[in-house]
Design a protein around this nucleic acid. Structure first.
Lengths: 208, 208
DNA sequence: TAGATTGTTAATCGATTAACAATC
DNA sequence: TAGATTGTTAATCGATTAACAATC
């Protein structure tokens, strides 16, 4: 089967989100143009992305949104909740842990870790929390697949290693550190400060 | 002056961050290869990016890191703190508002807003907070340049409009909604749920 | 049927990678 | 000087855009 370019995967994921929203609004058929408009993507581009999904019965007359959503879901493996954990229960970590859009959707955040034992015992949260030194064992026993890294930069590499040792296969890395992991583990970096800076730079470049 | 491609701007911003860290560690000269390695970017690529900065005296012998950092700073306008506000003081919003890495660096988060008046009065935070209906006036009087949008999806477009009316020139949008703003206002979308999904999809595609 | 819309192939565009002369 | 490293031009690579025949 053909492999899908990364930008196309990203657009398909946001399309997937949109299709879910439209479904609850009772819309069930729309053209590539209409979908592209609300997504801020050209109709050409969107059709091309959809073509990566493979089989796609209907020509003309717009897309059957429910069918399309299922197609994306199946091709990208978005059906089935992934078991996740949060490492680092500072403000950002606990916000992510309790971010309802995440758990409503395809992620099942099961457990949190922090090196501060006090915090682990006192923080109010809807999931179990444990001290960091128990991480590897607990990850293995719970079959956690995905780790969310929200620790201070200094601890990033060590925690990433624990996640790997615990058997995680993917990491969302909110630290500005480039962590080193085996090839078999995927890392996606989200550098908030970086994103802010990029916006700031673009605003500056725009002016002059 | 030549314009810089967006991906290059993003890489230069993360290089800027790295240079700051190295500076505090006392490192003051490094080659493009060494810098590229810790950044996960090819040396070629990095040199090309640096060339967009224009004037760059020294050939061979690696870069003078302090000088390089200043060059980036000046070319991308990263000297001078931007005045920012947070709209939507839920968990994510207040985490961002108090995220020290942001305020330590180039952003000066001055004020927060929420439609829930109770929340505005009771939340503990290091900045002033006001109810949403006062937003436009306060933004103007404080000359806020940048808005951070962390409201529920339903309120996103309205709040974006208030930010625009308040004179903001850039928005970091954490909602999954594509907000409509005048061309003069830059928007940078950070869709956390989307990022999670992309990782999930990549993990799935990797396997089979 | 006619008009609209899709799927897919071809053309354009832009970014990344490679190569190499210039420089410390 | 010789070795290393830069800046920049050229070549490759990949994604986006355009075009158009096939289809509802």
């Amino acid at each position: 089967m053909q492999s899908i370019p990364l930008p196309a995967v990203a657009r398909l994921c946001s399309l997937y989100q949109l299709l879910g929203d439209l479904e609850t609004q009772g819309v069930n058929r729309l053209s590539s143009g209409a979908l592209g408009d609300t997504l801020g993507v050209g109709a050409h581009n969107l059709r091309k992305d959809i073509s990566y999904l493979g089989e796609n019965a209907s020509s003309a007359g717009g897309y059957d949104l429910i069918r399309l959503r299922e197609l994306i879901s199946r091709r990208l493996g978005l059906d089935r909740k992934q078991r996740a954990c949060v490492v680092g229960l500072g403000r950002l970590g606990s916000a992510i842990m309790q971010h309802c859009r995440l758990s409503e959707n395809d992620f099942d955040i099961r457990v949190g870790f922090d090196s501060n034992v006090n915090l682990v015992e006192t923080l109010k949260a809807p999931v179990k929390m444990y001290p960091a030194y128990e991480m590897v064992d607990i990850l293995r026993s719970m079959s956690i697949e995905l780790g969310i890294l929200t620790v201070p930069p200094t601890g990033a590499q060590d925690c990433a290693q624990s996640l790997v040792d615990g058997g995680v296969r993917g990491i969302i890395n909110f630290t500005p550190v480039k962590v080193r992991v085996p090839e078999s583990v995927l890392v996606r970096d989200i550098d908030l400060t970086g994103e802010f800076r990029v916006l700031s730079a673009l605003m500056f470049l725009r002016k002059g």
